[in-house]
């Protein structure tokens, strides 16, 4: 599978995750978000940027438990809880946000 955008081709797996995370850009993120029914706002981008940075440093997508804790530390306590993250990404911050961020499906994510 693939996403065509502005003359560029982004290869994805059968679940719609980008195959090459280096190809990721904000334009394709918008498309991925649209497919998920997510309207991107500043709050969404904040989480997406955080996930990209986290992956860059540790080479994994964090488990939800770890993500909420780390977000709380970095972006403030009011954001470091699963309620906040589920409001932004109703089908699961791990699954949905990782997909929009162009990251592989998190380890252990069912």
């Amino acid at each position: 599978m693939a996403i065509e955008l502005n003359g560029k081709t982004y290869e994805t797996d059968e679940e719609g995750y980008l195959l090459n995370l280096n190809e990721w850009d904000r334009d394709v993120a918008e498309i991925l978000a649209k497919d998920e029914g997510v309207d991107m706002t500043e709050s969404h981008w904040e989480v997406i940027d955080f996930l990209r940075e986290y992956y860059d440093e540790y080479q994994i997508a964090p488990a939800v438990r770890v993500l909420t804790k780390a977000i709380g530390k970095k972006l403030g306590k009011e954001k470091g809880n699963s309620k906040y993250l589920y409001e932004l990404f109703p089908y699961g911050p791990a699954k949905q946000a990782c997909k929009i961020a162009g990251l592989p499906k998190p380890t252990g994510c069912i």
């Binding site: 440093e57 540790y58 080479q59 994994i60 964090p62 488990a63 770890v66 804790k69």
Partner: peptide, 14 residues
């Protein structure tokens, strides 16, 4: 191959 060594540094968070 993927360099997974940075992931050992994430273990603390788990």
């Amino acid at each position: 191959m993927k360099n997974f060594s940075p992931t050992y540094r994430a273990l603390e968070m788990y």
